[in-house]
């Protein structure tokens, strides 16, 4: 399976990334090299193998769903890292025109 520039551009859009035409050229080439290597997996019969998404036999870890108040100091220290804040909320550019 080979990918072309158009597909790489589509994946970039899905990942919220943009590339210059030169970067796109390079990424498509490297992408294909890596995929060729990854395609080695096709040498193995994996038909009846169960997937492993997690190595530990842990069940969902649940806790009581209760409201915990955090102090104003912590709230401020979180907001302090935000690029733009208004009325104690994160501010973003226009979402709806």
């Amino acid at each position: 399976m080979k990918v072309n520039k158009k597909e790489v551009e589509h994946v970039a859009a899905l990942a919220r990334l943009t590339f210059s035409p030169e970067e796109l050229e390079l990424y498509t080439e490297q992408f294909n090299d890596i995929l060729e290597y990854i395609n080695r997996l096709n040498e193995v019969d994996l038909e009846n193998v169960e997937p492993t998404s997690h190595v530990q036999p842990l069940k969902n870890v649940l806790r009581e769903d209760c409201v915990v108040t955090s102090d104003e100091e912590l709230r401020q220290s979180v907001l302090q890292e935000a690029p733009e804040v208004e009325h104690g909320f994160f501010k973003v550019p226009t979402i709806i025109d």
Partner: peptide, 28 residues
Amino acid sequence: KRRIMLGTYALSSGYYDAYYLKALKMRT
């Protein structure tokens, strides 16, 4: 960026079974 792209591709519609699922099976 390269790895985000590779991961997005492996998880994207039509490629999940061909790539990501196979990798999880290999893990087993």
